[in-house]
Structure formats: structure tokens, C-alpha cells
Design a protein around this nucleic acid. Structure first.
Lengths: 208, 208
DNA sequence: TCTCGATGTAATCAACTGATTACTACATAT
DNA sequence: ATATGTAGTAATCAGTTGATTACATCGAGA
């Protein structure tokens, strides 16, 4: 992904590339901790270009968060579209959970959303956090047809999953408590998620 | 809390005061976003004093996170100490959940932990995050005697609770989806948590 | 009362970082 | 071929912030 010697790209292509880089950097370091320079480096462009394309770091973060929430929404809707109406709640929940965990492969988006949620006290980012979260909740309730209790249990599991991935618990797979918790949370996908999580290379950290 | 005209205090007293202020500031703004100056202002001391007492911002954050995890551990152990061995899993889980939500009153500690967990990719803070989390998990498994599945469900609910509070979802109590989700997650404590959450005044944000 | 250690601050520094500006290079259409 | 708009960068600036230093003030014990 980084250090690609791509020549000129169209603005929409660069935009997507920068947003992908932003998801990784913001996902690992959060809003305040993620620098536009680190994002630029990850995307293979100059820091000035990143700022100019999005106007400001905050606008870039907003775009990054909205893109992440959009990806979650699309993954859910794609799954819901496969329902034929005969599924019970457990089947639907399992299918949605599988869709959610598959998003781990899209590096950074789940972690960027977690950082966004954690910044709910911020005057300008807080409303965005609540909007993104409630939009997703709405999909589970109205489009997937889960009951409040089912949706609640589903989101609880989702949050635990996200936090465990943010903590890099798969790095502690040798720890019996960690491995027990992961098996219990991820089920059959545990080994897949562990290899997936450990295969993600660190972002460039050297000076400007 | 802030702008107190307290005269000289002993070092341990100041230390605790600064740690309480740090929990609030780090809880709202995260590690990178929380400045030593904001913490100093919240504690009513100078920025230089905050840094010197803890050596560095990172050491202060570590102390703040450890203190938060310690408070969670103590709350759990205090609850576990009331068990007489006749409780079933649901009773124990409910009692622990009540203990956890009561920690919301200790402003910032749950949110500081969430920010710590979200920084699990950090080279130096990541191990601390996993340690704090697994220590708490260990208490639920070995000291409270929950099964892996019970502990899993308990932590899932706990994470959802924490994220909802971080997002300030109680501010959206007028939103039917938000209120439904809160009722479902918090049960009878919903109204208490809403008033508690809304009573917490913003931290000082004016210039240095 | 007079030290002397501990509490505490003002002033300042150096590094970092988001943003801006002026510029270059490439592609496409006429 | 040349003009023009778009992609892209190097250089630089100004504000912020963690850290350091030198200094001030309080209180307890000899």
C-alpha cells in the first residue's frame, strides 16, 4: 500500500487512496494522534496534498469516519439482501456478525469508528459519532428486523470484538485467558482473525 | 473540582487530585488529545508541576490508566466479597454490572480505559492496554467464577455501555432509537445514568 | 527565629504539526 | 505545438505543547 511508485492518478482515485491511508493511521493513533504527514506517507503523497484535498485535518477525519460507517452499513445491507424471510433471529444475527468480522480485512475502518465513538464529548465530532452509530443501529432494527433485545446483544458483541481487535489481543494468543476470550467471541473465525490481524504491517513512523 | 483555591497540599494529595483531573481530560480527549495544560487547569495547578510530578505525559497517562483499572478491579472485588456462594450466574452478572455502571460516577475512568484500549497498536501503551483488560477478565473468571461464555457476555455488555457513555448517547435521549437502546442496555438505571451523564460539566478550554 | 526541604510557579525552549504559498510537471484539446 | 487546467511538491510559517530551568513561598523542626 505505501511506497507505491504510482504516477499521476485522477483526483477521485487519490481521494480513495488517501481515505484508505487515513483509516489505517486514524485507526491506530486516533484523531489527535494521527498526523496528516503519517497519512500522506502511508498514501505515498505529500503532506500538503492531503491537507489541500480535504481542506483540513478535521474534514479529512469526518470523511474517513463517514466512509467507515458507510462500509459497515453496506456490509449489513448486503447481508440483509440475502435474507428470504424464513430466518430466525439467531440466523440473522450470525450472518450479520460474520459480515461485521469480515470488515476486519478492510484495515482501519472499525478502529477509526471506535476512536470516533470515544470522542463523543467533542463539540463537533460528538454529533457525528452519535449519527454514525445510530444509523447503524437503525439498520439492524428496521432493515434486519431485529428486536431491541436482539439488536442490543448484537451490538454488545460487536463492540467487544472491535475493542479486542483494537487492543491487538491476537498478539497475546499465547495467553490462555486471551485465547479463551477470543475463541468464545470469534468462534470458528478465531484463527482466521488472528492471522489476519497479525499480518497487518506497522505504519511508517520515521521523521518528516 | 477546578478553580479551587486550595492552599498547599501534601504530594500524595496533589497526586490524587491530578490523577482525578487526568481521568477527566484523558477520558474526554484521549491520550494524544489531552494536554498536560488542560489537566493542570482542571486540577488547579501549573502545567509545569503536572509534568514534574509524573516525569512525563506518558507516565502520567500510564498512572491514570492503572488507577482506572484498579478502581474497576476494586469495584468488582467488593461486589464479589458480598457473594455467599448461593448466587447463580445471572445474579452474579447483574451485581457486577451494577458495580460497573456505578463507576460512571467516578468521572473519566471508564472513558480513559476505553481510550487506552483503542490505542492497543501503540508499542508502549498496547501492552498496558492488554494487561489492564486481561487483569479485569481474570477477576471475572477466577474470582467471580463466571464461565467463559458468561464472562464473554458480561464484557460485551460492558463495552457497549462504555461506548454509549463515551458517545454521550444520553444527550440524544429524545431520539427514539437512542432511548430504546439505552433502556435496553441500562434497564432500571437508565434515568439515573442520563441525569448523571448530563450533569458533568465541560472542562476548561480557554487559552494557556 | 532561622534553616531547609518540599510545594509550587513563571518564563522559556525546542520539537512537532496543520496550514499556506509559490512553484513544477504532466495531460489533453484545439 | 502551445495553451490550459489539473495533479502534485518543496519550502516555510505560526500556533501548540511537552519539557526544562530558575526562582519563589510555605511550613516544620532545631
Amino acid at each position: 500500500m505505501s511506497a507505491e511508485e504510482t504516477s499521476r492518478l485522477s483526483a477521485p482515485e487519490r481521494r480513495e487512496q488517501i481515505l484508505a491511508a487515513a483509516a489505517i493511521v486514524f485507526g491506530e493513533r486516533g484523531y489527535a494522534g494521527g498526523t496528516t504527514d503519517a497519512i500522506a506517507r502511508q498514501a505515498g503523497v505529500s503532506q500538503a496534498y492531503v491537507v489541500r484535498m480535504f481542506g483540513s485535518k478535521e474534514k479529512l477525519f469526518r470523511a474517513s469516519a463517514l466512509r467507515a460507517a458507510d462500509k459497515v452499513g453496506h456490509a449489513f445491507r448486503d447481508t440483509i439482501a440475502t435474507f428470504n424471510g424464513d430466518e430466525d433471529a439467531e440466523q440473522k444475527t450470525l450472518a450479520l456478525a460474520a459480515a461485521y468480522t469480515s470488515l476486519v480485512a478492510d484495515r482501519g475502518i472499525l478502529l477509526t469508528l471506535l476512536h470516533l465513538f470515544a470522542l463523543g464529548h467533542d463539540d463537533t465530532l460528538g454529533p457525528l459519532a452519535r449519527e454514525c452509530f445510530l444509523d447503524t443501529y437503525r439498520i439492524a432494527r428496521d432493515e434486519a428486523g431485529l428486536t431491541p433485545e436482539e439488536a442490543n446483544a448484537f451490538f454488545a458483541r460487536g463492540m467487544l470484538t472491535t475493542v479486542m481487535l483494537a487492543m491487538r489481543l491476537p498478539d497475546d494468543a499465547a495467553n490462555p485467558y486471551a485465547s479463551e476470550l477470543m475463541s468464545c467471541t470469534f468462534g470458528e473465525l478465531t484463527t482466521d482473525l488472528i492471522t489476519l490481524s497479525q499480518g497487518q504491517v506497522p505504519i511508517d513512523t520515521s521523521g518528516r
